[in-house]
Simulated scan of single mutants.
Amino acid sequence: MVAGPIFNIQTVDKDHSALKSIQLPHSLCLAGQEREAVFGVLHVTGKQPVIETVQSSGSHVKWSVSSLSPVGAIARATQQDRHHGEVLLYQVLCSRPTVDIHCFRIYLASNSSHVKDINKKLTKGRFITIDKNTFCLMGDENYHLTSEPRGEIDPQYMPFTVKPRGFFEAYYEQTPPFKLNLKASGSDVTAWTATIRQDDLVTEKKPSWKHLLGWSRPGSSKRKMSVPHTEKTMASSTQEPSVQILKKNKVKLARWLQADFQLILQHAHSGELVDDRVYQHLKSKALPEDACYDLIDALMSRGESSSSDFLKLLRDPEVHNTYNTQLRDWVLSL
């Protein structure tokens, strides 16, 4: 079984013989066990993988360098194996236009360099680390995330792997606290738990784009937009119809928006630009680019009003600043 990350180690201006040994990290929990004899290093030389014997400690294996190529710690698998894992918890800012909806991302990672990889991948400014107890023991199995009060969690199950393959996303329309619980599938034992309180959150008290544009308040039975008489609407007679604008620019819009399709979908759904049925269909799409095309087609099929409202949504700096600067320049030029 894989016990740690794979490294491709090289030397600069020196022969590999300058390296005598390297300490490679592993994530296996060795408490109460003698595991030195079952560790090894998977060493790829040419086309043939080679398993070399190593010395081990509670967090690393010591590999005597024979040649340089991709290497990583491995171990003989048993049913009792557990990894030192970390649960990384982030608040997602601006995921929806209203301040009373909270969104979080939860990652399962081994306590290795993958934790740093996750932090590097997250867009600076959009994700805020929530400092909670992160450490837990996890096996090579599926884990189920639940919460109190019950929120919208997607997916509900995810496997733990040494190299993370995804994340949980949790939405709440209630106010904190939110208690998260992580358990192995089919187990009643809690592997990790944390409570998110109001003091843990960063709140941006900005008016929603619907209010800025004159939409009715959330929960109102009618959707109306009041526009000053001195302001021309995007669908006025002096401008090209919004449906035609979307149609002519559909390819490049899809290319820009697929960078974070879930963000624009949440905005469109919260603004009632798409109904629940279309929202669920788009959310289940495997390819973001296909989902972008379907979203634009759905808006055009609903007519000039929905197409115009979507272009107004793209004008909101909270939205277009998240994407490529080409999108911002394009939409502000309309």
Rank of each mutant, 00 (worst) to 15 (best):
F7M: 03
N8Y: 04
V12E: 09
K14M: 12
L19V: 00
S27L: 09
E34R: 14
G40Y: 08
G40E: 10
G40I: 03
T45H: 12
K47T: 11
Q48I: 12
V50D: 07
T53I: 03
V54S: 00
V54R: 00
S56V: 00
S57F: 07
S57R: 03
K62M: 06
P70Q: 02
P70W: 05
P70R: 09
R76Q: 11
T78V: 08
Q80N: 11
D81W: 01
R82G: 00
E86Y: 04
V87A: 07
V87N: 04
V92W: 07
L93E: 02
C94S: 14
S95Q: 15
P97C: 00
T98D: 03
N111F: 03
N111P: 05
S112N: 14
K116Q: 15
I118T: 00
L122C: 03
L122F: 09
K124G: 01
I128C: 02
T129L: 13
I130S: 04
D131I: 04
N133Y: 11
T134F: 04
F135L: 14
C136I: 10
Y143R: 06
H144D: 12
P149V: 05
P149A: 01
G151N: 07
G151Q: 06
D154Y: 10
D154E: 10
M158E: 08
F160S: 12
K179A: 14
V189T: 15
T190E: 10
T193R: 11
T193L: 09
R197V: 13
T203C: 01
S208R: 07
W209A: 03
K210H: 02
G214F: 05
S220N: 15
K224Q: 13
V227A: 04
P228A: 11
E240I: 12
S242L: 11
Q244A: 13
L246V: 08
N249A: 14
V251C: 06
V251F: 12
L253V: 05
A254N: 01
R255D: 06
W256H: 11
L257H: 03
A259Q: 08
L263W: 09
L265P: 06
A268T: 06
H269V: 10
G271V: 02
V274Y: 03
D275R: 08
R277K: 15
L282T: 08
K283L: 15
K283V: 08
K283G: 05
S284D: 03
S284P: 01
K285D: 14
K285T: 13
A286M: 04
L287G: 02
E289K: 14
D290C: 10
C292A: 15
Y293R: 15
Y293Q: 13
Y293K: 14
L295Q: 06
S301M: 11
S301K: 15
R302H: 12
G303P: 03
E304T: 04
S305M: 10
F310N: 00
L314M: 08
H320E: 02
D329R: 15
V331D: 02
